[in-house]
Simulated scan of single mutants.
Amino acid sequence: MPRDAKIFIAGHRGMVGSAITRKFEREGYTRLLKRTHRELDLRNQQAVKEFFDLERPEYVVLASAKVGGIMANKTHPAEFLVENLEIQNNVIMQAFRTGVKKFCFLGSSCIYPCKAPQPIKEEYLLTGPLEPTNEGYALAKIAGYKLCLYLSKEYGFPTVSLMPCNLYGTNDNYDPENSHVFPAFIRRFTEAAAKQLPEVTLWGTGAPLREFLHVDDVADAVYYFLQNRNEPEVINIGYGSDLSIRELAEKIAAAAGFTGRLRWDSSRPDGMYRKLMDSTRARSLGWSPKISLDEGIARTVREYLAGDGRRNG
């Protein structure tokens, strides 16, 4: 990609989109197209068409999505399905119509069956039922990937689809009602440490296993595969190992300086028991993560305490 290429990063203010924007800026790209939700509602088909007709981006990264934690997904599955389908269909089809040189679709590990063998290989997609607590979001992401795949195979539309594991880091969403587990723990434990609370109650049993990747590593993957991958099949982007939610809580509590007791409320849902991605394909193609989990936790705690790198906090 030439440094003066026009690149549209859809969702540039979100955690993933902002990390991708920072990556491209560091690499010397000067014509990044950015639009806030107020400036361009990606759910609006006509508005998206007018944007593509006017700007004619050469490369597109779709990092915009309606996202949320277990409770938000479980409570509003229709909204997660419909809004993500609208965003994806509008951006993908206009990119295809206007002849974009390369399109990057970002999905999620939740596209895989809830009882898939571990670690999860790309070929396990659509081999079993999805995790019920985020089925709406998962169905939308599957549809987005398949649309990219079909356009590639039928018309030669150049796409790459990346499926990251659980992400965390700079510019995460720390809203107490809608955040994911990692930022929720960062907020809970830093506040508990500041107030010197004797105890913090957490949802579930703490037994489920999760894999976490720093958002700067997924930005690096996007940059790498846009330039080094010309096949439309899905690629897993993962850290390579997982840990229990209990272990994660203990690590974040220690980094935040919380020394009180952890209490687990087993009446609350755990979600899918394990989601470890098999990222062998990505590594065989030349990409691997660079930020260790301990380093990422320490960096994220520092950013949160400094008041940087957070949304809805």
Score class of each variant (00 low, 15 high):
T36C: 03
A19G: 13
P2F: 02
G28L: 11
R13S: 15
M15L: 12
F8G: 04
E25P: 00
I7Q: 05
F8S: 03
R26M: 13
R22M: 12
S18P: 05
R35L: 00
G17A: 13
V16T: 13
R35V: 01
L40R: 00
R22K: 14
A19W: 14
E39A: 12
M15H: 12
R31H: 10
Y29E: 02
G14R: 10
T36K: 00
G28K: 10
R26L: 14
L32Q: 01
R3P: 03
I20H: 12
R13L: 11
K6E: 08
E39L: 03
H37N: 03
I9W: 13
L40M: 02
R3V: 05
A10V: 08
G28M: 10
R26I: 15
I20D: 08
L33W: 02
G14C: 06
R38K: 10
S18D: 15
G11A: 09
P2G: 09
K34C: 07
T36G: 03
K23S: 08
R26W: 10
T21D: 15
K34A: 03
I7D: 04
A10H: 07
D4F: 05
G11Q: 05
D4A: 06
L40P: 04
K34V: 03
L33I: 09
G14D: 08
D4V: 02
V16I: 15
G17D: 07
Y29F: 13
L40I: 01
L33M: 08
I7C: 07
M15I: 08
L32E: 00
T30S: 07
S18E: 10
H12N: 12
G28Y: 09
M15E: 09
T21C: 12
L40G: 00
A19T: 14
R38M: 06
A19M: 12
R31S: 09
L32W: 04
R35I: 00
A19D: 08
A19I: 13
K23L: 09
R13E: 11
K6Y: 06
R3N: 09
P2W: 02
I20V: 15
R38T: 15
H12A: 10
H12M: 07
A10Y: 07
R38L: 15
I7F: 04
E27H: 08
E39S: 04
E25H: 07
V16K: 13
R3L: 13
R26N: 11
D4L: 06
K23W: 13
P2I: 01
T30L: 01
I20T: 14
R26D: 10
G28I: 13
K6Q: 07
L40K: 01
T30Q: 05
F24G: 03
E25L: 15
L40A: 04
P2T: 02
P2K: 06
S18K: 14
P2S: 08
R22F: 13
R13T: 13
L40H: 00
E25I: 15
I7W: 05
I20K: 11
R22H: 15
R3D: 09
E39Y: 00
A5W: 04
I7P: 11
I7K: 05
R3Y: 07
T21I: 06
G11I: 03
K34R: 10
A5M: 05
D4K: 06
I9H: 14
T30E: 05
I7E: 04
E39W: 08
